[in-house]
Design a protein around this nucleic acid. Structure first.
Lengths: 110, 110
DNA sequence: TTTCCATACCCAGGGAACCTAGGCATAGAA
DNA sequence: TTCTATGCCTAGGTTCCCTGGGTATGGAAA
């Protein structure tokens, strides 16, 4: 499933709802919550998290308390604000697309 | 407003609902129907229409009956099928995103 | 004990998409 | 006559996301 342009919102949303979490868990959360719709390769998610960190929306640190060494990410204050802003933007985007493509077909009767 | 990955669906939808139409009119239709949300530069739309034509989803011809020479686009049979498929895909995409980001805030009371 | 899978991190490079920033030309209004 | 809206186009850059690797450990299975 294509993500183009909305990956940041998804990542920020996961980090917002889970709190501090490592990258691999973000991938599984995305897959589980979307029931398989968003099964993203690591080569997508790790660089994206780094990009968000460079942008100051996310902060990371190593967690050495677990058996396996992990890098743990969490939202910064800017990240929280960016998530909220991108969510509103998403709402407008959906409205715009629906206006162009027309309503989705209703689910058929049982 | 970002379009990433969903431009084809928008273009195919406009062509589907208008029938044969020239590129500039596609741009204005997109802007008007979305109430300004999708105000796309020509440098986005013209190359995209060409790409759709190369993909066989759209056919074009010159229309010399109007005072100004125009290139008119319309959907092929494959284009109609692609539009329907992409619309279904869009539905799944929205469901997936909503599952991750949570419900949108309700509009406030009047 | 060895083998395999899931976990967990990373990077280089490629391809595609979209936009910027132009160029060219005509019709009609001011 | 000059300006704006219409109408077409392209080259090139940027950014994004993915492919296809590499490295390593923990735990289960054989």
């Amino acid at each position: 499933m294509e993500i183009r342009g909305h990956l940041d919102l998804l990542l920020l949303s996961v980090l917002d709802s889970t709190g501090p979490v490592h990258g691999y868990a973000v991938i599984t959360a995305l897959r589980d919550r979307s029931e398989g719709t968003f099964d993203l390769p690591e080569g997508t998610v790790y660089p994206a998290l780094q990009r968000l960190e460079r942008a100051g929306l996310v902060a990371s640190r190593w967690d050495d308390t677990t058996p396996r060494r992990r890098r743990v990410y969490e939202l910064t204050d800017d990240g929280h604000r960016a998530r909220a802003a991108k969510k509103r933007e998403w709402g407008g985007f959906v409205v715009g697309v629906q206006a162009i493509i027309g309503p989705m077909a209703a689910a058929g009767p049982a």
